[in-house]
């Protein structure tokens, strides 16, 4: 899932600025699961903004609503009326959600309430870790299901570098060395010979380096009217 973190209230206040009517829009998918921007968080942020603006002597009208997925037009259509009534929308969606609102409501000013962090998973209650960098050309089949692009600090394809120590990365002790993990896993699976192949330079075209990406599935497209 996409993992995000809420911005500080100070930054949110600054982003909302002098807008009088504010709509906080939560998202019911990834950011709900990671406790950053679901219905609960949207209600809390709305209440905080109301209180803060009241204390500052310029009370704002702050409402909140949460859609199932901010990244799909059909769910955004459901809040079109509320969006049309406010000066600013504070999106608690990921970066995709914020942009979907901007794109879908061209006359609406939208600001982000979250920092979108990564694609990852909760490894324990309250802890999320990055797992995928979305490079567009999955090589997990070569590395025993552990991604060196996302999880090695240097995205090495022929690691580990000389900074691997006691299972952690040279960057800090909190980061497991991806190549130690890969080594251990291949060893336990009896597949260490995989590591003797030199992996060639990666084609980064499929990653963000090739420019913004797009997928077109002709088999799924609706027939366009002539």
């Amino acid at each position: 899932m996409i993992v995000a973190e809420q911005k500080s209230l100070d930054e949110i206040k600054q982003l909302v600025g002098r807008a009088q009517k504010v709509l906080v829009v939560g998202c019911g998918t990834c950011v709900t699961v990671c406790f950053a921007g679901g219905a609960r968080e949207a209600a809390i942020v709305a209440a905080e903004l109301r209180m803060a603006s009241k204390l500052e002597g310029a009370p704002k009208e702050v409402t909140d609503v949460t859609v199932q997925r901010q990244c799909e037009w059909e769910y955004l259509d459901q809040i079109a009326e509320q969006v049309g009534q406010v000066d600013v929308v504070l999106s608690l969606g990921c970066g995709v959600g914020v942009q979907a609102i901007a794109e879908h409501f061209p006359n609406t000013w939208v600001v982000p309430g979250l920092n979108t962090k990564f694609m990852g998973l909760p490894t324990e209650q309250g802890v999320w870790e990055e797992r995928c960098a979305g490079c567009g050309d999955c090589l997990l089949g070569l590395t025993g299901g552990i991604c060196p692009i996302a999880r090695c600090s240097k995205s090495l394809l022929n690691g580990p570098c000389g900074g691997s120590l006691n299972g952690h990365c040279e960057v800090n002790e909190e980061i497991p060395c991806a190549w130690q993990l890969i080594y251990d896993r291949l060893k336990s699976m009896g597949k260490l010979e995989v590591l003797m192949d030199i992996q060639p330079p990666k084609n980064w075209c499929t990653a963000r380096d090739g420019g913004p990406r797009k997928i077109v599935r002709e088999d799924l497209r609706l027939a366009t009217e002539e």
Partner: peptide
């Protein structure tokens, strides 16, 4: 780095 971890893989990485 002969003694960086995993130590047993280092000669192989050298060979690579």
């Amino acid at each position: 780095s002969p003694f960086a971890h995993p130590v047993e893989f280092r000669p192989y990485r050298l060979a690579k």
